[in-house]
């Protein structure tokens, strides 16, 4: 079977694109490892219009159900390769061996957590080093933890952990954390949270599990900071490994360059969401969903021709 549109990526951009495509009558399929993408790891979403407060996993589930309600199949497999076999003929090879054919492609692969890249990080992942505060925060009840980063995700994680842990350090390389005022005020209000600015982690130390962090800027005259857990929230980078064959044009940081209509440099290929340059790299659910919708509107015009 050949689809009009294959959407690669099942986060907010991909699912929103699917909803718009289905409503236009475009035969589409969604391919993505985890439906809902990174929103499944978000503690709480409070800036999606119409939902004052919603858990990340619940949002992911609702968005998935919404897309599926039009009869669209969501293939929860990773795409291994995308090939352009000629005009209007793309082939996508999935990790289960399946091959999907489509006339057009929308890349909505989003981004992945950036890692610190310091000694001990890899070895202690899952043993005190975590990339998902919502998932793992619970294991640090009345313990001491650190959050690395100063963006909204880091601040959100710190506030979330502030309700569970005994003490939360926020380790930030800059002068002042740069998050929404809502988060900053929540941090200031909680005496358990302490921000260590102008500080980087040099090394993560532990034998079977995390024992301490080595800082480049001493805290209370010591370079060593004893913590039970460290949550890495230093932003994300685009998921572009899959794009080698397609040769879409990227910017200097690896984001896919798109036009105002979502078009990439390759004919028949559009992109939307956190992986693109489309929304000033704001990386919000609302911008991803909007880019998905905009791209599909253009794809619809293209398919009609």
């Amino acid at each position: 079977m050949k689809y009009d549109l294959a959407i690669v990526g099942a986060g907010p951009a991909g699912l929103s694109a699917s909803v718009y495509a289905s409503r236009y009558g475009i035969k589409n399929v969604v391919i993505g490892g985890i439906s809902g993408g990174l929103t499944t790891q978000t503690h709480e979403i409070g800036n999606w219009l119409g939902e004052q407060k919603i858990a990340g996993w619940e949002f992911a589930q609702k968005a998935t159900e919404h897309a599926k309600s039009y009869g669209v199949e969501i293939k929860n497999f990773l795409a291994d390769e995308i090939k352009k076999e000629g005009e209007g003929n793309f082939q996508i090879f999935l990790s289960n061996g399946e091959k999907i054919q489509a006339r057009t492609i929308l890349i909505a692969l989003g981004s992945k957590h950036r890692h610190l890249g310091v000694k001990g990080e890899k070895e202690l992942a899952g043993k005190g080093v975590s990339y998902c505060a919502t998932c793992d925060g619970f294991f640090y009840k009345e313990k001491t933890v650190a959050v690395v980063g100063g963006n909204d995700s880091a601040a959100g994680a710190a506030v979330f952990l502030g309700n569970i842990a005994k003490k939360v350090f926020v380790i930030y390389r800059g002068e002042q954390i740069r998050c929404e005022r809502f988060w900053r005020e929540s941090i200031e209000k909680n005496p358990k949270i302490e921000v260590l600015s102008n500080t980087n982690i040099k090394e993560i130390v532990g034998k079977d599990k995390l024992e301490k962090l080595i800082l480049d800027n001493p805290y209370q005259d010591k370079e060593e900071l004893e913590v039970d857990g460290v949550f890495v929230e230093i932003g994300s980078e685009p998921n572009i490994e899959l794009l080698k064959n397609l040769k879409v044009e990227l910017d200097e940081d690896g984001y896919i360059k798109i036009g105002p209509d979502g078009k990439t440099s390759v004919k028949g290929v559009w992109a939307a969401g956190d992986i693109t340059t489309g929304s000033n790299k704001f990386k919000q659910i609302i911008t991803a969903a909007a880019e998905g919708a905009v791209a599909v509107a253009d794809i619809q015009g293209f398919l009609k021709k």
Binding site: G36, T42, W57
Partner: peptide, 14 residues
């Protein structure tokens, strides 16, 4: 697993 963990919930059907 735990109910509050999004990826865990997504793991269930798998």
């Amino acid at each position: 697993w735990a109910p509050w963990c999004g990826p865990c919930r997504m793991m269930a059907p798998v």
